[in-house]
């Protein structure tokens, strides 16, 4: 049973990161929490003896997905900013 303590901790970390990713409403900050979720999932997968899955989760969950989210935010924000300025003029 003691051998599975790390797994339990990993699960708690994943649950916490997942909850955080939902509760953090700002997409930029959410993307950082998502990347944390990706990292903790990768750690959990390693503990569950799934190095293949951990590796792709690391590549996708903690790099690719947050990167795409950030780029989308940048695009959306830029659009919104230029419109706000227009309104002021």
């Amino acid at each position: 049973m003691t051998g599975e303590l790390p797994v339990l901790l990993g699960l708690l970390l994943v649950a916490a990161a997942g909850t955080g990713a939902v509760l953090v409403r700002d997409p930029v900050r959410q993307s950082f929490v998502l990347s944390l979720l990706g990292l903790s999932l990768a750690a959990l997968f390693l503990l569950l003896q799934a190095p293949d899955v951990a590796l792709s989760q690391l590549a996708v969950g903690s790099a690719l997905t947050p990167l795409m989210v950030l780029l989308s935010v940048r695009k959306v924000r830029r659009k919104a900013r230029s419109e706000r300025r227009e309104e002021r003029e």
């Binding site: 990713a21 939902v22 409403r25 998502l34 999932l41 997905t65 989210v69």
Partner: peptide
């Protein structure tokens, strides 16, 4: 998160959280 989201980018992030449940269950 999806149901209460006020920002669609955030909603897509929540969908990713939903999906991570399937990874955990399967493994």
């Amino acid at each position: 998160g999806l149901a209460t989201s006020r920002n669609l980018i955030h909603a897509v992030g929540c969908l990713a959280v939903c999906q991570s449940s399937t990874y955990v269950l399967l493994l």
